[in-house]
Each structure stands twice: as C-alpha cells, then as structure tokens.
C-alpha cells in the first residue's frame, strides 16, 4: 500500500498528464465518431456572448455586400409575385410555394463560420428561445448551408455541408435521380454527390437541388452545379463534383427552416421500421 502511494506521489505529474490527455482524447474521438458534438460546443452563453460582441463590429464591414444580396433576393421574389406562376422546381428558395403552412422560416445571423477544418460548424444567434431545435435545415437565399446540430437557450450550432459527418439527400434538377451529398474535406467551393445511378443523364453545368426525401429540407432548394463527373470504381454509379452556389467562406444572414409535418413523417417512418 505504502508503495502504491509512493508511486502515485512520485509520478503525480505524469499521471495528471495522462489523465488530462485521455480526457482530451476521449472528447476528440467522441467528436469524430458521433453525429453530435455533445459536451464541448460553441452553443453556450459564454462563447455566444463573445462572438456576439465581435459580430456586431464585424457586421459593418459586410453591409454593402449584404445589401446587394438582399436586394437581389427581393428582386427575385418580386418577379415571382408578379408572374405568380408555381415555380416549385426552381433552383432558388421560394418559401411561398411551400404553401399550406408546411414550413416555418426563422431568420438568423451567423456569429461564427469555419471552413478550413475537416468538420466545420457555424454558430447562429437563434436558439431554443426562438424554438430552434436539432435537425432543422439551414439555408441562404442561394442554397443550403447545413443542419442544426446543437442548441442552447440563445444560440445554435450548424453542422455545415462542409463536414465529413454530413450526408444530405440531393437530386438532379432535371430528372428525379437521387444521390448523397458528401464532402471530401478539400476545397470549400466543392462538394461531392455520390451514388447517382448510371442511367441518369448527367451533363456538366446541370443544377443539383435537395431531394426532399428527408424531412429536413423542402424539395428543390439549390445546392450547386455539376463541375465534373466520373464513373465510380464499381461502374454502376456516378461520382459528381458539385460547385456550390453559396460561397461558404462568406455567409452572413441565413434562414432556418422548420418542417411542421416532421413529427408526423417521423412517426410514420418509425412505424414502418417495426
């Protein structure tokens, strides 16, 4: 017994190092292997407060650009209103065509954005107080950004499409061939669409939109255009390089989308599984 105590006292620095290092390692592994980063994330009061303070300064530098984006969007919406044709297959976001009150839209500001890591997250200034919950979709006027990951009272983090953990259902705009949108961790301008059937008429320059098979995003929200494609090693599917509509390095204002029918869809799907 005495010897054990002596051992602990003699090696206390090393043991403390080992303890702290294993905690850090456990957190790292946890953040790599699960969809949610549970314990340490920036959706809390401290980080949100700091980011909020500096964001209010930062905003002034982008005012011009933000204005241009907003007036662009206004123009599109105005055109749609005047022409008032049903454009549910359009590449841009048109919340009026998702009528019958199926979707609720919440506006939010981006407090923190990252795109140089292998799993990128954004922090938004909306949280549970604005009834934002996990698995809501996040988009801009141009296209999709990601899915809500964690929420606190006032803030939320978004799992960006620039993340190795993200996998989003997408399809070709012209046909209904579907695939999964993933990211290879390289360039923030491109994502990859895999598992697209060989029968699909893939052309460079074609538009990729969300598939609407999951309850997160409405069908037909723009993602990007086809930059290049190749046949998979197996020979049955295409791997498509998608150039994103959004400049993921410069995101200011986003919209959070809630699917009001989600619980119903989920319940139905769960009942099939059983």
């Amino acid at each position: 017994m005495q010897q054990i105590f002596n051992f602990v006292i003699r090696n206390k620095t090393f043991l403390l190092f080992l303890l702290l290092f294993s905690i850090a390692l456990a957190l790292t592994i946890q953040s790599h292997s699960y969809h949610r980063s549970k314990f340490i994330n920036s959706a809390n009061g401290l980080t949100g407060g700091v980011y909020g303070t500096f964001n209010s300064i930062d905003q002034y530098f982008d005012l011009k650009e933000e204005n241009a984006i907003l007036s662009d969007e206004n123009k599109r919406l105005r055109e749609q209103l005047l022409n008032s044709v049903n454009t549910s297959d359009s590449s841009y976001i048109d919340t009026t065509s998702y009528s019958q009150g199926k979707y609720r839209v919440i506006k939010a500001n981006v407090y923190k954005n990252s795109y140089s890591l292998t799993n990128n997250l954004l922090t938004l200034n909306r949280g549970e107080n604005d009834s934002v919950k996990q698995d809501f979709g996040v988009i801009t006027s141009k296209g999709i950004i990601g899915i809500i990951d964690n929420t606190s009272k006032k803030y939320a983090t978004v799992l960006s499409i620039l993340s190795k953990k993200s996998q989003i259902n997408a399809k070709l705009k012209s046909t209904n061939h579907i695939g999964s949108l993933i990211w290879n961790g390289e360039s923030p301008e491109f994502t990859q669409l895999i598992d697209v059937s060989n029968f699909a008429p893939v052309k460079i320059g074609d538009t990729i939109v969300t598939g609407g098979q999951s309850a997160i995003f409405p069908k037909g929200i723009g993602i990007g255009t086809i930059d290049s494609f190749e046949t998979d090693i197996s020979g049955d599917t295409y791997n498509i390089q998608v150039r994103l509509f959004n400049d993921m390095t410069n995101v200011g204002t986003v919209y959070i989308i809630e699917n009001l029918d989600k619980t119903e869809i989920k319940a139905l799907e769960d009942s099939i599984d059983e």
């Binding site: 190092f17 790292t28 946890q30 990252s114 922090t123």
Partner: peptide
C-alpha cells in the same frame, strides 16, 4: 498542466473542435 488544459479546452469550445487543442496544449 491544469491551466494549459483549461486554455486548450476554451479554444476547443470556441472553435467546436472536440478536444484537439486541449490534447495538444497538454
């Protein structure tokens, strides 16, 4: 060691990176 761990952990919290900064700092 403890203070370094805390510093790394804070950076991790701000940048949503799990525990990588904490591990490297320790």
């Amino acid at each position: 060691l403890l203070v370094s761990f805390l510093l790394g952990m804070m950076v991790d919290m701000f940048s949503d990176s799990g525990g990588v900064h904490a591990a490297a700092a320790v």
